[in-house]
Design a binder for these strands. Sequence first.
DNA 1: TAATCATATTAGAATTTTCTAATATCCTTA
DNA 2: TAAGGATATTAGAAAATTCTAATATGATTA
Lengths: 102, 102
Amino acid sequence: MKIEDLEVKFLKALSHPVRLKIVKKLKKGTLCVCELDEDLEFSQSNLSQHLRILRDASVLTKERDGSRINYSIKDERIIKLLDIVQDIVLKDILDINDKLGG
Amino acid sequence: MKIEDLEVKFLKALSHPVRLKIVKKLKKGTLCVCELDEDLEFSQSNLSQHLRILRDASVLTKERDGSRINYSIKDERIIKLLDIVQDIVLKDILDINDKLGG
DNA sequence: TAATCATATTAGAATTTTCTAATATCCTTA
DNA sequence: TAAGGATATTAGAAAATTCTAATATGATTA
């Protein structure tokens, strides 16, 4: 697989409301699937599918701990990356409000 | 629209091989549509559609110059962001090769 | 080792995205 | 103002993604 395809795969993994929420939850540290499942409003199998997509794209890693599976963000720079995305989007909202507000 | 939706929209815009290629082409600076059209292997209307998606997601901005339209990256941090994505993916490839190679 | 808890996989329907082809718009120049 | 060049829009078919429901796997405990 070419580098560009991997980049697209990586970005695509983050481009989903549920998956982005999952990754944000993990910014503070490792969580098991059961904890991730808590306030996400959809089925367990769906969560599992999203986790697989995030793993396959190298966003998350998993590790077994007894009967539980712990997930964590694979690379610290992913947190930085999400912060940049947030900044860009926020700036954009502010710019729009400026133009509307006068 | 909520912040998270905008973040997803932004990331989704970048998550397509053609669109990522377009944005990378623009890292060096502004280009008109005709220049972007050059070595991209698909129809003009399709290119135009991708450009709209990138605009709508605040990745690019456009500006008219006579009969031409120039596109550029809206926020410098987008370049930084793409570099981080590349680094993460590259590191991942190297790690995998390490494990395979011994 | 049977039962149970935690997580993963599969199949297929529903939704969304993408592309092509046709057409429209908007600027420039003759 | 007609013609041509540059870009955008639209409709709809094709392809990809997402979700649900059912089932499977794997570890723990009774």
